[in-house]
């Protein structure tokens, strides 16, 4: 029990610490791909540090929701970091929320961010909230469908159990998982606000989704939101790893595997970062009303995954 709790704490600390690094890695690769000089791996840390020390400016009309939303978002993301098996399956928190509840935990964060976007009373905030909720309401079914496919294979919806099953069963080629992976990748792009759905670097009014919601934030609130956003990207990447490529993760009471788990996770995340950069460099951001079609494709893929689980396996 003490071992699992310490693993749990270790993992949460790791997620908190490594998330900006992952974003830094993606940004650095992107700069290289564009032929620019990069600000270095550690720039996200510097940004967060700087924001924490800045004073806060709040819109006159903003209510307590505006001030509470960053904390709730941050809290939800940290909790998600304790639920998803990142380095080990030996997580007590993993039992307190299965994959459906995990999706809902991210939904709480989104709910409050969207409310905060409407709180200040700007046109942009409302626009961002409306768009974010549109993307989310279409992404969530696709996400659940894709996850359901894996839980059908594993016979469980508890994440650590799902990982445990795929680690302990022999390697089988499963077309259903391939479909689910594709669908998951599309949904993850939409959920974490990457190109081609949303552009995390833009501040051009008409193309923003997520940035429009958090436009009014500053200082420590913005720092929390940024950090939570970085964790969300990191967590979606590690959720993908846990669901589809868990090999190398430490099992129950297996401290010797931990170094291996860290190394393999780092390698996988580095590869995922490279894939993100490849996609983002090749594709342009799509029109907002093509997003439903994009997510529709994700949904169809997830459905096909589930169908092929029944048809072909």
């Amino acid at each position: 029990m003490i071992y699992s709790i310490s693993i749990e704490c270790l993992q949460i600390a790791f997620v908190l610490g490594a998330a900006p690094l992952f974003v830094g890695w993606v940004r650095m690769l992107k700069c290289w791909a564009h032929g620019r000089a990069s600000a270095g791996l550690l720039q996200p840390y510097r940004d967060i540090y700087k924001l924490f020390y800045k004073d806060v400016t709040i819109a006159r009309n903003a209510s307590w929701i505006f001030r509470a939303a960053p904390y709730i978002t941050f809290g939800a993301c940290v909790l998600a970091g304790g639920i998803i098996p990142v380095i080990s399956t030996d997580l007590p928190l993993s039992l307190s929320a299965d994959v459906i509840a995990l999706v809902a935990v991210f939904a709480i964060a989104r709910f409050f961010t969207a409310l905060a976007g409407m709180d200040a009373g700007t046109a942009f905030g409302g626009m961002g909230s409306s768009r974010e909720m549109m993307v989310a309401s279409l992404a969530e079914p696709a996400m659940l469908m894709s996850v359901f496919t894996i839980s059908l294979v594993a016979g469980s919806t508890t994440l650590s159990q799902m990982v445990h099953v795929s680690l302990s069963s022999p390697l089988v080629l499963r077309p259903s998982l391939a479909f689910a992976l594709l669908a998951f990748a599309l949904v993850a792009i939409a959920e974490t606000g990457r190109i081609p759905v949303d552009n995390p670097a833009t501040h051009l009014e008409l193309t923003m989704i997520h940035e429009a919601m958090v436009l009014e934030y500053s200082g420590r609130h913005l720092a929390l939101i940024e950090w939570a956003g970085e964790m969300k990207l990191f967590l979606f990447a590690s959720l993908g790893v846990a669901l589809f490529f868990p090999w190398g993760m430490a099992g129950v009471y297996n401290p010797l595997m931990l170094p291996v788990a860290f190394v393999s996770l780092a390698a996988k995340l580095a590869a995922i970062g490279a894939a993100i950069v490849l996609v983002e460099t090749r594709l342009a951001k799509m029109r907002i009303f093509h997003v439903p079609e994009f997510l529709g494709i994700a949904f169809i893929l997830a459905t096909l995954g589930m169908l092929s689980f029944f048809m072909l396996e």
Partner: peptide, 20 residues
């Protein structure tokens, strides 16, 4: 069964509140 699915609202709530 606990291996199939489990959900604990009190722990989730306490966890988020503690982090906040």
């Amino acid at each position: 069964a606990s291996a199939r699915a489990s959900y604990s609202a009190p722990i989730l709530f306490a966890g988020v509140m503690a982090v906040i």
